Simulated assay, not measured.
Amino acid sequence: MNPTADVSAPLSVSFPAPLKVAVIVGSNREGRFGPVVADWLLGRFRERDDLTAEVVDTADTRLPTALSYSPPPEVTAELAKVTPKLAAADAFVVLTPEYNHSFPASLKALIDWHYEEWRAKPVAFVSYGGVSGGLRAVEQLRQVFAELHAVTVRDTVSFHNAGASFDDEGRHRDPAAPDAAAKVMLDQLAWWASALRDAKAVRPYGS
């Protein structure tokens, strides 16, 4: 022991910065239910100190389905609204309804206009709909994100007959089960996001 050391000096302890999560609202449909589900999910983020959320809403952008390596200025302007948020994110939560056994075209356009932004990052899903709760959309999204080198977490949150599950103020009528499911999902997302962030700091993905 160093006799000259000041044992009364406080120890300096550094904690990892909170993980940045982009919460993607996948539907831009008129009269959509997505914002209700998004508000509920953001409430779950506010209960944690290891994750911070930033919303990426497909209704706020107008990305065409015709892809281009040299997009015109109007498309570049639309990309500027979302690409930096996706690039800065350590992880993603995708909120999706189910349209005709699949997910919305607005969500597919957002996904397809990006590539590097998804690579070696985890993706979790919150789905909503009628009897299926949007789960068929989630199963298709898993295949899409696998092609983009993203890691999808196992556990999801799904709202069956979603419109009847929330009151007029956007509060879930019976929150115990979805709140518990959200905790499990976000715990898994945080683990993968932390592990992948640390791994990429040592060795960039694909090198």
Rank of each mutant, 00 (worst) to 15 (best):
V82C: 09
S158V: 01
V184F: 01
K81L: 14
A177I: 06
G130K: 15
T96R: 14
L186Y: 08
I111P: 04
D57I: 02
T152Q: 13
K121V: 01
R142N: 06
M1E: 03
K108E: 04
S68P: 08
P18L: 09
V157I: 14
A38C: 15
G26S: 05
P122Q: 08
M1K: 12
E30W: 01
Y205V: 02
E78G: 15
D49W: 12
R171C: 14
R46G: 11
V138I: 14
V153P: 05
L135C: 09
L51E: 04
F92S: 12
G130M: 13
A193F: 03
A38Y: 01
D39Q: 15
V93R: 07
D174Y: 02
E116Q: 07
V202K: 09
H172G: 01
S127A: 15
S207C: 11
L141M: 11
L135K: 11
V202D: 10
A77N: 06
A190K: 06
E47A: 14
W191E: 08
L135A: 13
A109S: 12
A9F: 13
V138K: 13
V13N: 09
L148S: 05
L186K: 09
V82R: 10
V184Y: 01
H114E: 11
A177M: 12
A109P: 03
A120Q: 10
L42P: 05
Q140W: 07
S27P: 10
A87D: 13
E30V: 04
V36N: 07
P175F: 03
W191I: 10
A190D: 04
D112W: 08
V82W: 06
K20R: 15
A87P: 04
G34V: 07
T76Q: 15
S68I: 00
R171L: 08
K183T: 05
D179V: 00
A22W: 02
A9Q: 12
V202F: 05
A162M: 11
K108I: 03
D168N: 15
L19P: 00
L196I: 03
W113D: 05
P178I: 01
A120R: 04
L189Y: 09
D60L: 14
T4L: 15
P84H: 11
D174V: 07
Y128V: 03
L110W: 03
V126N: 04
D155P: 08
P104F: 09
V184W: 04
A105G: 15
R142K: 14
L95Y: 09
D90G: 08
V157M: 07
E54Q: 14
P204Q: 06
I24V: 15
A53K: 13
L189I: 03
R197M: 02
T4A: 15
V21H: 08
V75Y: 14
A199W: 00
F166P: 06
